[in-house]
Structures are given as structure tokens and as C-alpha cells.
Write a protein that binds this DNA or RNA. Structure first.
Length: 370
DNA sequence: TAATTATGACGAC
DNA sequence: TCGTCCTAATTAC
């Protein structure tokens, strides 16, 4: 689930429902007891995402405010890895456009109740998505899990006395305020850092369109990618080159760019690298606003409705091996690239001609043939 | 009930 | 290039 768009949505959720509140931190699973104790009782003062990493900043402990030294903020850094997830419950302030485990599309209300009838109000024009979604969608959770549905169903019989709900499964960290709760399961990274360590973590990351906007960000991506001998399909997954792209967005970006994933970065024309960055900006924006990795953009209203209902209908090539109905854009194959499944359409995605070796003094006219 | 799978990243050779 | 870590849902048996 978690490519870059999910993490930005999770950060939004924390900003909406946790920042500015005092937090009780615990580790029901027991694997993060010391870290939780260090955060327990602090106020969450900021929440942000860079690429696939989440940073939750906490203020000083109560007894630190009297200390002569400047109180050190503590930052919880979380990386969800392949299957980590945050589950929110309580007075979660936003309504999220979500897809339930059974494929239904709808929204959640403040206590996670699944509401189906709002699906009809969704815009049918994919290009209109980022601007057309109602304001209430901001701050929603990431992809829902069955657990959220159970929670929603349980709401009917539950009462306020059940608060907080008992942890279900292996909860690494539970963050609890008076009226909201966040449970973290299965992260690949979860640690408490000081500000300097945060800077070190950030320094390893390439630009993230949600954080680094404008030409400087695009240039930073191009500058790194254009000199690498590595296949562009690997480069897009390299978080030190560009942040937030995972296996789905990688495959879809390259299909949309008509670019052979095996093309070495240094053989990709600069204008095509710039186009890749701009398409990433577009796809990430849609992802953050909708919570879905919607990577097709030539859909009829009917196709759009189907894409919202079925994940497989949202992508051109990801997990579409054997797919032949690409409207003349070839057939999808699956290959291994660096230990990950790569999906692409060889008939459609081309390798640009390698650049001619750079001459010492580039002649203005066409060089003569020897 | 067991095996498989996953939208990730790291470290040992 | 491997193996490893972490969890839950899905699929196979």
C-alpha cells in the first residue's frame, strides 16, 4: 500500500487530529517500549512526510521546561516498508474516499463508519480530480483495511465506555490523545531521533514533489538521473534520486512516458527525464488527493467508475501481465528487475537512441562522415 | 492449516 | 545476488 502518496495522507491525518495535543505513547506489542516511554506525555507539535518516511515531532516533556538547557525535540521516524500500516480511530475529523476490502467505494465518517452513497458524488473526469474533490477529503487516512470495516461495524454496538479500544494484533506503537488514537503495525523502521539525526535522514532523500516544488526540484532529479548507467526503471525506485516512487508508480510512469525501463539513465534524453518528473508531480498529486494510485488518465466516465471500484482497473501495466487491450499499445509482460517485479509493454515503450559520444568541441554543423 | 504474496529497504557476500 | 526483517490478507491444499 504505501508509496509516497499514502504517507502524505497519513501526515495530514496526524496534523488534523494529533498536532497540538498531548499524547500517550505505548507499545502494546512490546517491541518499542523504550521509544514509546521517551515520547509518552509529550505534545505532538508537527507531522510531515518526505517520500515514504513519516516524521512526527514531539515537544519537551513537562519536566524539561524548567531545565536550563534548551529542551530537545524528539522526532518519531516511521517507514512502513512493504506492509506497515497506521490505523486511526476515535474522533478522526475527516471523511476519506476509500475502497473497502470487498471493493466497495465510499467514505468513512468520524468514527470510521463506512458510507457508501457518497460514491456517486465523485467527479468522473480524472483530470478534474485534484481540484474537484470536496474539501472534506483532506486529511483522510490511507488505504483502509478490513480492520477498519470491523471497527465500523462494531460501532453500532459499542459505546464510549469501550474507549480506547483494545489493541488488535501486533501493535508496535499506539499514540493516544483524549479522543483520537493511532496504531502502527509492521513498520520497517520506527525510531526516536533528535533534530540532527532527522537532518541526516533527510539528506539521503531525493526531491519529493509535495515538499520540494518548482524548477529546483526538477533540476535536482534530472541532474542525478542523467549521469547514471543504471536502468531508468531502477533509478525511479532509488529514493536518493527521487522520493516516494514505488513499484506501481515506477511501472506506470514509464509506460506513460513510452520509455523502456532498461534504458540507462544517461541515455534518456533530458527532456524525457523532465517529462517523467512532471508526470510524477501529477500522479502524486492525484494520489494524495484521492488516496488511490490512479495512473490511467484517458478513461471514459464508465471506465473511471470501474477504476474506482477495482484496483486492477486503475493501472495500465502494473500486475496486468498478459493484458492485450491497451488500445494498440502492445502487450504487458512481467520481468525481474533488481529483485522486484517489473511490468511493462515492450511494443509500446521504446529505448531512445544512445547519445553520440560527446565531442571535445561540438561542431555546430553535422559532422562529416569519415 | 499452511503457503504465498505484497505498493520496501538493508546488509552480508 | 542473495537472504532477512516485519505483518496481515489471500490463496492453496
Amino acid at each position: 500500500m504505501p508509496e509516497g502518496h499514502s504517507i502524505h495522507r497519513i501526515a495530514r491525518q496526524f496534523r488534523a487530529n494529533f498536532v497540538g495535543k498531548r499524547v500517550s505513547a505505548s507499545s502494546p506489542q512490546g517491541r518499542f517500549t523504550a521509544g514509546a516511554a521517551e515520547l509518552d506525555g509529550r505534545e505532538m507539535v508537527a507531522a510531515s512526510a518526505v517520500g515514504k518516511q513519516l516524521f512526527l515531532e514531539f515537544g519537551p516533556k513537562a519536566d524539561e521546561t524548567t531545565s536550563t538547557e534548551a529542551p530537545a525535540p524528539r522526532i518519531l521516524r516511521v517507514h512502513l516498508g512493504l506492509y506497515g500500516a497506521w490505523d486511526f480511530s476515535g474522533d478522526i475529523s475527516v471523511d476519506a474516499t476509500i475502497q473497502a476490502s470487498d471493493g466497495r467505494i465510499g467514505q468513512t465518517n468520524q468514527r470510521g463508519t463506512f458510507l457508501e452513497d457518497v460514491a456517486a458524488e465523485l467527479p468522473t473526469d480524472p483530470d478534474a480530480l485534484p481540484d474537484a474533490l470536496p474539501e472534506s477529503s483532506i486529511g483522510s487516512i490511507g488505504a483502509p483495511r478490513r480492520a477498519r470495516l470491523r471497527m465500523a461495524e462494531g460501532e453500532k454496538s459499542s459505546s464510549l465506555e469501550d474507549w480506547p479500544p483494545p489493541p488488535v494484533g501486533a501493535v508496535r506503537v499506539r499514540l493516544l490523545t483524549e479522543d483520537t488514537m493511532a496504531d502502527l503495525r509492521g513498520p520497517t523502521a520506527c525510531e526516536v531521533l533528535d533534530p540532527e539525526q532527522v537532518q541526516q535522514a533527510l539528506a539521503k532523500l531525493g526531491p519529493d514533489p509535495m515538499v520540494d516544488s518548482g524548477k529546483a526540484a526538477e533540476d535536482a532529479f534530472v541532474k542525478k538521473a542523467i549521469k547514471k548507467p543504471t536502468p531508468i526503471g531502477m533509478i525511479l525506485m532509488d529514493q536518493s534520486v527521487v522520493s516516494g516512487i514505488g513499484n506501481v508508480y515506477r511501472a506506470e510512469l514509464l509506460f506513460r512516458a513510452r520509455l523502456d525501463p532498461w534504458t540507462p539513465g544517461r541515455d534518456v534524453p533530458e527532456r524525457q527525464l523532465r517529462a517523467l518528473w512532471r508526470d510524477w508531480v501529477k500522479l502524486l498529486t492525484i494520489g494524495v488527493e484521492t488516496g488511490q494510485m490512479l495512473t490511467k488518465d484517458d478513461l471514459s466516465p464508465e471506465e473511471y467508475r470501474r477504476a474506482m471500484a477495482r484496483r486492477s482497473e486503475r493501472h495500465y501495466v502494473y500486475k496486468r501481465e498478459g493484458e492485450k487491450s491497451l488500445r494498440g499499445r502492445g502487450e504487458v509482460v512481467m520481468e525481474d528487475m533488481g529483485g522486484r517485479n517489473l511490468y511493462w509493454a515492450p511494443g509500446w515503450q521504446k529505448r531512445p537512441a544512445p547519445k553520440p559520444p560527446a565531442a571535445k568541441r561540438a561542431p555546430k554543423t553535422t559532422p562529416k562522415n569519415d
